[in-house]
Amino acid sequence: MSGTLLDLILYLALVALGAFLGSRPQIQSLPMPWLGRFQTAALLLLIVTLGAELGANEEIISSLGTIGLNALAVTLTSMVGSMLAVHALRKYLLKLNAQGRSCQEAPEDSDPGSGEAVHVDHSLTLAIVFTVAAGILAGRFLLPDAAVAHCGTVIRWGLYLLLFLVGLDMGRQGSLIRDIRAAGLRVLLVPLAVMAGTFAVTALVGLFLPLGPKDCVAAAAGFGWYSLAPTLLAPYSLTVSATAFLSNIMHELFSIVAVPIVAQKLGYIEAVALPGATAMDTLLPVVVSATADRMAIYSFASGLILSLAVPVLVPAIIALPL
């Protein structure tokens, strides 16, 4: 437990340090076109190493079919749970209509969304999939045991670098905190409802899956962040880590298809909640196109809070004495 807490403190400290440095005027004024590429490189290094560690593990390879089914179950139940919780929040607590407005607010012409097709760049998701596949094959057929033994160290330091870069990028945004405050309290309740719905439904379904409730909740606690959650789970269980990786990849891909449908059939705020952590980046243009421009702050804030919660919740869940 003490080791988990120390790791958690270190993760948060790295993000905070990056955000502090990124918020400095001297840093914000510097053009950093390399930052995104450096983040991607660190991410791919981390993922290929994780894939190699998975590929070298006989137990994981022999149970890939079961892992895939567990991942699909975790993905679908977490998405359904988050939508149900946010729907209840919007309708019964916030008392907002399907477009996310109170009775006193006048509708805008832009509420139905732009109606234009949005191009979503899937290159990073595809790169992640191919990279982890290459890592698994390398770990399975190419890397000697001596090299595989160092994978854990590479994963740990790669994670440290990635967390620092994420904090640096957030700090460079500058107006993030001001924009969240302007949106009001209700924008902060959405990710809390996502967490509650996700954990409640995945824990319930976990009673009927081989993973069990605790491991299902841990796998779902990545909220679509397929790079960080599996890495945090790797020292705990490679099986749960592999399940989390596949589940979070599915979460993003399914959300791309489901967000426009949910926005039309259920509500705008439910559509914001569906992508989880990816609502702040990959799925943001999809959410805005399917809903309205004013939903951008809901989407970004929800994705940000869920992303910040991942390094807190995942270690906390796996540390539970269950």
Score class of each variant (00 low, 15 high):
residue 1 M to D: 10
residue 11 Y to S: 00
residue 15 V to H: 08
residue 16 A to Q: 06
residue 24 R to A: 15
residue 26 Q to I: 12
residue 27 I to E: 09
residue 31 P to L: 05
residue 31 P to Y: 00
residue 33 P to C: 12
residue 39 Q to W: 01
residue 46 L to D: 08
residue 61 I to Q: 08
residue 62 S to I: 04
residue 64 L to I: 15
residue 68 G to F: 12
residue 75 T to Q: 04
residue 77 T to N: 06
residue 85 A to E: 09
residue 91 K to Q: 11
residue 91 K to I: 08
residue 112 P to H: 11
residue 113 G to E: 07
residue 113 G to F: 06
residue 121 D to I: 07
residue 125 T to E: 02
residue 126 L to F: 04
residue 131 T to W: 02
residue 136 I to T: 03
residue 144 P to H: 09
residue 145 D to K: 15
residue 145 D to A: 15
residue 145 D to T: 14
residue 148 V to P: 02
residue 160 Y to E: 03
residue 161 L to E: 07
residue 163 L to R: 03
residue 166 V to Y: 03
residue 167 G to A: 05
residue 171 G to N: 07
residue 175 S to G: 14
residue 186 R to A: 05
residue 186 R to Y: 09
residue 187 V to D: 04
residue 190 V to K: 02
residue 191 P to R: 12
residue 191 P to W: 11
residue 192 L to Q: 12
residue 195 M to C: 14
residue 199 F to Y: 13
residue 205 V to Y: 00
residue 206 G to E: 02
residue 215 D to E: 13
residue 215 D to A: 06
residue 224 G to F: 06
residue 225 W to P: 11
residue 229 A to F: 00
residue 231 T to D: 01
residue 234 A to H: 14
residue 236 Y to Q: 03
residue 240 V to Y: 08
residue 248 N to E: 08
residue 248 N to R: 01
residue 251 H to V: 11
residue 256 I to T: 14
residue 256 I to N: 01
residue 257 V to I: 15
residue 260 P to Y: 13
residue 262 V to G: 02
residue 272 V to C: 09
residue 273 A to M: 01
residue 274 L to E: 06
residue 278 T to N: 00
residue 282 T to Q: 09
residue 291 T to D: 07
residue 296 A to E: 05
residue 297 I to R: 03
residue 298 Y to N: 02
residue 302 S to K: 02
residue 310 V to E: 08
residue 313 L to S: 00
residue 320 L to I: 14
residue 321 P to M: 10
